[in-house]
Design a protein around this nucleic acid. Sequence first.
DNA 1: CTGTTAGCGCATTCAC
DNA 2: GTGAATGCGCTAACAG
Lengths: 342, 342
Amino acid sequence: MKKRAPTIKEIAKMLNLSVSTVSRALHDNTHISPATIKRVKEVAEELEYEPNQMAMFLQSGKTFTLGVIIPHLSEAFFSEAISGIEDYASEHNYNVLMGQSHDSVDREKKIVGAMKNHRVDGILVSIAKNSKDFNHFEILQKYEIPVVFFDRVPERAEFNTVTCKMETGMFEAVDFLAKKGHTRIAFMNGPRDLLATRERQMGYESSLKALHLINNAEYVVHSDLSSESTHRAMQQLITLNPKPTAVIAFNDYVALDAMQYARKMNIQINQDISFVSFANLPINNYMENPPLASVEQFPYRQGQRATELLLQILSIPKNKREQEVIRKIILEPRLVIHTRSN
Amino acid sequence: MKKRAPTIKEIAKMLNLSVSTVSRALHDNTHISPATIKRVKEVAEELEYEPNQMAMFLQSGKTFTLGVIIPHLSEAFFSEAISGIEDYASEHNYNVLMGQSHDSVDREKKIVGAMKNHRVDGILVSIAKNSKDFNHFEILQKYEIPVVFFDRVPERAEFNTVTCKMETGMFEAVDFLAKKGHTRIAFMNGPRDLLATRERQMGYESSLKALHLINNAEYVVHSDLSSESTHRAMQQLITLNPKPTAVIAFNDYVALDAMQYARKMNIQINQDISFVSFANLPINNYMENPPLASVEQFPYRQGQRATELLLQILSIPKNKREQEVIRKIILEPRLVIHTRSN
DNA sequence: CTGTTAGCGCATTCAC
DNA sequence: GTGAATGCGCTAACAG
């Protein structure tokens, strides 16, 4: 029982009507007799008619599809974010096309090309960790495909962004540790190219200053986010004399790797050295010994807000868009203190 | 500097050629003079021409887009699987449209509708945990949209599936514990509607029999996968007399929740009661005290294989497809034994 | 209130 | 070797 998707043409033929009448009966309702509308809708129902989005696109220019580009789907932070994006998008009848850059700028460019090609209405991006040139995104502006960056965003005035205010989060983290009596608070930061890295750095320095703590450059190390790199960075810290008594980690994965390495070196987690991290992945709830605290960055909400902003931009007529202001949405993070679950 | 996506029409105009010549120059190359081809390609390059997929669809019927439906993106197992799907798909120049059912059959149906509507070429699904009727998927067959199920699959002969052979995994798990001297091995199973639940159940029973262990019905409890439900199930087990000395959990999340609850009840994990689980999420690598072992189900590879199968089906001409055999791909799971990382 | 027509971007058939 | 014409499914002028 093969069944091609029915078209308005077939409905029209069955009812001896013209396609336009059927089309209008399905939408307008104005200028069409209630009787005809009823007949048309009945037949449509019966045939399980569904409009062909591609055909509609061809003529409207709208695909009702949003593109999402993230580094890795397997990172909990990003999958939470996409989850928020998809939920919000589907509530508003948008589809979500997704691609992983795997932190490669080349793949990022390729994905942007594929999405342009696919004529998505707009794109949401968290950039690859070493993206320094944003040509591929600027081109999109020319094609009138709006872009909203979230979490990992370029440091440029002309882009719409949704981020968490890292300075606040960092201050809370440092303050939390200071109140616990720590004075030698180390910071394991991320890849130097990332805006987030520089923001955390600034937050770290200004927090130390505000709390009258000593700022020793040796207490700042960098990880490129790989386990090996994190291990090396941790090694650097524990060979210092005096050792730091607390470490703030760029994110949970870095914290996890650092803690794993520290344990191997016979350091008692959160006793010899206390840990605090960023992101607050659900994994923390299941650890016997999670970081003492984590700066919650609300990936799900970031995804939602970014999508909301994008849809808002899309609702503006194209010719009015360039008069629009660039939006920079900044969410407040929150320090979540973990009480041991057992 | 507004820039609409260029069309072959514009290229044609610029070169004083007809659209058809341009179209052929871009593909065929046969019956077109090399000189013209060169000129056309140069202009196309210069204009950054990209064919409009939607227009191509309208005329070819192919969108080069695959739909993926999963319960939750925030579950590591599924995000790993999608990661495999997206990687494989993008290697073969397919786009991925994705939707979360949130384990609701209604949303699942809605998503299927949206994807049919979007004219995806094929669909990959891991069904909602309480999907019992598969009408919405059967309809797709009629529209000649092939479907491949993975991991959570319906128990029906007529569907293509990719799964892990749970009986094998279960036997290895039971055998592993038996060799460690355990005789009272409990099993915390999942939602009764899931095929995976029944398969694990059968595997559990047959393994006990094969290893000459006692099969006490009280040692089998069920969780609906929520934390509360898992806690209740764990409570059931520890009130038994004699208590089981080992628990096999439906998956890692269930194991995590069960272990968390057990700790709260002052039970020493992997001493008083040993745990073994299914899935083997990366989280296990970071736990100080993970389950002793976990049956690795290779979500990434399942995603890849499912996509490979789907693309293979798509490569068969539509009118030949119904002569095709239904494919049931079964992967062998592997018991991964965790050595404490510290 | 309803029908006719054109056109969205492209591939394809048929002419020449 | 190239051009003209057609159609994919649909909406929107334009007629009546």
